[in-house]
C-alpha cells in the first residue's frame, strides 16, 4: 500500500466499524447483564476486561457447569489472539515505550488487521488509532444501550446482530484475502480452528490457527484474482 494520507481508512469504513461495535456492544452486554444481574459490574467488566470474547468464554464455561479456574483459563486463552496481534503490530512500529504500551492495550482484530495492511509506520499508527477510536465510540454507545435497554431489545439474534461482527471481520481482511499467501493463511487458519472445536479446550483452536500463517510462508507473494 502507498503511504499517502488517502491510504488510511475512509470515513465509510470507520462508520461501519463503529456501527459494528455498536451492535457488538448491545449483543454482548445484553448477554452479560442477563447472567450477572448487575448493571455496575456489567459496565465495569466491559471497561476493564476490554475483550468481549473473554467475557463470553468465561460465562459459557460457568453456564456449562465448569469451575471458576476453568472458566478463567478459557477467558484468558480466547484473548491470546490479542497477544499474537499485538506482536505482529509491535514488529511494525518504532515508538516510545508509553505509546507502545497504549497500542498494546488496545490491540484488537479490526485495528491491527487494517493497520498492518500499510507499509509506512505513519499510516500504520494513524490507521490503528482511527479504527480504535471508531471501535470505542461504537462499543461504548452499544454497551450503554445494551445495559439500559437490554430488556426492551430482547433477543439480539432476532435482529441479526450476531452476524454483524463476523461480517465486519471478513470485510476487514478482504484485502489480505486477495493476496495468495493471505488467502492460504486464512483458509488453513479457519479450517484448523473449526476442525479442533470440541476437541481442543476453548480458545486453543484460535491459537493453533496461526499454523495457517506458518504454512502460507512458503507461498510466493502475488494476487490470486
Amino acid at each position: 500500500m502507498t503511504g499517502d494520507r488517502s491510504s488510511t481508512p475512509p470515513l465509510g469504513v470507520l462508520f461501519g466499524i463503529a456501527a459494528t461495535f455498536f451492535a457488538l456492544g448491545i449483543t454482548v452486554n445484553v448477554v452479560v447483564l442477563e447472567r450477572i444481574e448487575s448493571e455496575a459490574r456489567t459496565f465495569v467488566a466491559a471497561v476493564v476486561i476490554n475483550a468481549a470474547t473473554t467475557e463470553l468464554a468465561y460465562l459459557a464455561v460457568r453456564d456449562a457447569g465448569g469451575g471458576l479456574l476453568a472458566a478463567l483459563i478459557a477467558g484468558w486463552v480466547v484473548a491470546s489472539r490479542f497477544g499474537l496481534l499485538a506482536a505482529s503490530l509491535g514488529a511494525r512500529i518504532s515508538v516510545g515505550r508509553a505509546h507502545r504500551l497504549a497500542i498494546a492495550l488496545q490491540s484488537f482484530d479490526p485495528n491491527v488487521g487494517l493497520a498492518v495492511q500499510h507499509d509506512a509506520q505513519r499510516d500504520v499508527i494513524r490507521t490503528f488509532w482511527r479504527v480504535t477510536a471508531a471501535m470505542h465510540a461504537g462499543w461504548w454507545s452499544g454497551t450503554i444501550v445494551g445495559i439500559v435497554f437490554g430488556n426492551v431489545i430482547g433477543d439480539a439474534g432476532a435482529w441479526g446482530l450476531d452476524a454483524v461482527f463476523p461480517a465486519a471481520m471478513l470485510a476487514i481482511i478482504g484485502n489480505l484475502l486477495r493476496e495468495r499467501a493471505g488467502f492460504v493463511a486464512a483458509v488453513i487458519g479457519a479450517t484448523v480452528c473449526v476442525g479442533l472445536l470440541g476437541v481442543a479446550p476453548a480458545g486453543v483452536p484460535i491459537i493453533l490457527s496461526v499454523s495457517g500463517a506458518v504454512v502460507a510462508l512458503g507461498i510466493r507473494s502475488g494476487t490470486h484474482q
Binding site: V112, P166, M169, I173, A185, A186, G189, P205
Partner: peptide, 11 residues
Amino acid sequence: LIPAAVVAAVV
C-alpha cells in the same frame, strides 16, 4: 500473515 489466519479463524 498472522492477522489473516487468526481473524479468519474467528470469523
